[in-house]
Design a protein around this nucleic acid. Sequence first.
RNA 1: GCCGGGGUGGCGGAAUGGUAGACGCGGUGGUCUCAAACACCAUUGGGGUCAAACCCGUGCGGGUUCGAGUCCCGCCCCCGGCACCA
Length: 888
Amino acid sequence: MPDRYEPSQFESKWQERWKQADLFATREEPGRPKFYGMDFFPYPSGAGLSVGHCRNYVPTDVLCRMKFMQGYNVLHPMGFDSFGLPAENEAIKNKTHPAPMIERYAANYRRQMELVGISYDWSRSFSSADPDYYKWTQWIFEVLHERGLAYRKQAAVNWDPVDKTVLADEEIIGGRAERSGALVEKKWIPQWYFKITEYAQQLIDDLDTLDWPEGIKAQQRNWIGKSEGVQFRLDVAGTGDSDGKFDLDNHNTPAKKLSFEVFTTRIDTLFGVAFCVLAPEHALVEDLIKIVPAENQADVREYQEAAKRLSDTDRTATNREKTGVFTGAYAINPGNGQKVPIWLADYVLATYGTGAIMAVPAHDERDYEFALKFGIPVIPVIAPAEGKIPEGCYAAKDGVMVNSGEYTGLSVAEGQFALARWMEGLGIGKAITQYKLRDWLTSRQRYWGCPIPVIHSADGDEQLVPVQDLPVLLPDVDSYEPSGDGSSPLAHIPEFVNVTDRDGKLGRRETDTMSGFACSSWYFLRFCDPHNPKEAWNLDRANYWMPVDCYVGGAEHAVMHLLYARFWTKVLNDAGLIQVREPFARLQNQGQVLAYTPYRQPRDGETLGVGEDGILVSFAEADAMKARGEGNQLFYKWVRMSKSKGNVVTPDEAKATFGADALRMYLLFVAPFSADVQWSNEGMMGMTRFLSKVFKLATDLKPFWAADWREHIPFEAMDPLGKEARRLTHFTIKTSTADIDSFGFNTYVSGLMKYVNGISDVLAKADPSNRAHALALSEALETLPLLLSPGAPHSADEIWEGILQKPGFVFRQDWPTHEEALAAADVVTVAVQVNGKLRDTLEFPAGTSNEELEAGALASAKVQTHLEGKSIRKVIVIPNKLVNLVAS
RNA sequence: GCCGGGGUGGCGGAAUGGUAGACGCGGUGGUCUCAAACACCAUUGGGGUCAAACCCGUGCGGGUUCGAGUCCCGCCCCCGGCACCA
């Protein structure tokens, strides 16, 4: 038995034995509490895992391993998110079919996960592209459809010209496709949507019940974008009954009568309306154009054309100067009957609210900017509670209404309430709630996804494929490249498209597939009952395991996967198919692993891209440059590991060079869980050193080993050294347990380091013939592999069997519990301060009375010198900690 | 601009309002070695001193408190997200 950490001697051996023993099989024993710990469903890429992925999986593994040892039934599954664009694009690039490719990649992921000793129950694994799985994805689609939550409509959608498919709003960043980076275009085609907007309010409300990072919750709230205000009607002057009164019974009769709705959160500023703005695409424009002077007509048409030509990115670019055109028409402000000009401007979005606004330049920055540019008067109607009306734009919400007729003098809140009531009474407006959230666009015109189980009948109605006919299998074809014309490649496969509908007539199969996010919106339910051929899940089993107690993955899915999965869970709950309303009780986001990556200054003739400050070079090239004496052109940056940057460290390499346990412990130790990690070979060396110390300590403790220590230790008197050993053991049990539960993995590892250092110090002073020492150190020797095992499971088993010669696996042992009285020290170091400044530290027996602490503090010579010439005004004593003498 | 999270030695980072810098990396000195690597021991916030005493120190400026990295007020900077959402 070596007294060093030699991973090549035992890590693979233990992995093999764990597999043979089926050690990580999910246990569902009655009488135990359950714990469901899960990592984000990965898409298996050909690049394989990097140590960055391990940063996700290892901490979850540590938590799940501890929970199992604590007696929980633990569900710790892993599967593969195989459908979707990334897989299909990679297959096209490799000129292969995605199905076998993805299977190969998933097998490699599994191999690598086993390489670092993650305790997944592989018998529960599946891929979202398995027909046994996507059959039920289709079934859930039908549940949604039957509840009116899946629908098809013609719409202008985000078209990615590179990936040749539509994208959801969430997949677009700054006008570009998140994945391909292409500028997104608008395309007008029928699309499938899930009606997530129906759940907007619940999705906001239930965030309060979740133990999630604040940032993620805030992002979801922001994305859903709730705002409360008033929607009301404005009539167009000179049309219909425009004498200032509103003929509610009659508003449809004069064909010419025109009006439009606006939404505002600041109805209190109604008397400050200086103009109205319609989005260039607003439907009313077609009517307005018929009643305005010819020159205005030309301006309007020209502006509409210009707006159409602008890409969304250009249109929404920040700091862009306002543009707009006067339509020639006027609206009547219902508050004061005044005529205000109607403008067209692209700063008003057609897709939010009603696509039209009342503009109040005195109290809205955008309107103010617009008014300044076009010389429109600014009418202040809100003033500070005290002081005079400010110049320019004053958007405060805590002011008082002025110049507002009978409402003058009311506070903003009072005015909002009163005006909303008034409008409701008149029937021209009402208080409503608006959300930025739009329905989830789920159809993709691509091959590699879950087919939508719908048949378009000859009569043109939509029929769901009967459940007994599911799954609608994805046809196995050679050519599946996107068609590029906006139709799915499946549309060009007659055997797939042509079907008999419910009435026996020739129907047409839906050829769009579902976004990959549909597949990952329910997989956590399938893990509860992964191979059920009759149901998506057995209700009892799903209710037993759900919700996921701890869900771990990257923060990049804040508003996509995590929002969609919450939505589906709520729908399934409403349908009586699952008991929970939220899928993930607790969420944790891990930081990324960064590599120190070489860049060089650009050479003559080379230019840098936007936002770049150097040119990436390979490590080999960097070495060559240094050898040529060009090292001064090099600089290094901490950047995320990625294949394209050539800076990836794989778990395979890390295990071969340093060992799996060293890798695991390093990833846990080097930074707080949610912070980014800087990869360092020196740090890995340090961890190897630590693990060697553990083996050395265990070996050196062996001569003290009394196998029956547990029977004797409570009754034996301990000397101070023995007590110190026991204190270290029990204190470390306490902190390790709390640290793992709270995701404090870095302090869990540092706690083990302190423990090893502390026990080593005790050991150096210990006497092998002293019974008390032997018992206390036996306790330490046996506790060490237990506490170590979540972080370094291979080493723990090696010590357990090799040094303690105990049978079985550490994983199957009980997690130790601490005794509070033993975890506390007998002798405490008390800080003595004079006027809050540290002047001495003194040792006292724990529990020394305040009076004695004060007396001891006063007796200190160091303290005396600082008290000279002063008299004590007050004494503060914190038992076992501190004495502060306040003197002057 | 708005929202969220941060700012502590040369570096990663510890610190229920109570001894700031635990633990580790790196550095320095030493042991081992023909030598190096590894390993081990000692030391390591800055100033000051032979050594101590002592002084200064958690982004900046105030405040509360016997006592502030921690709480309050006002700023600055960094990271992430959203962004003409009326």
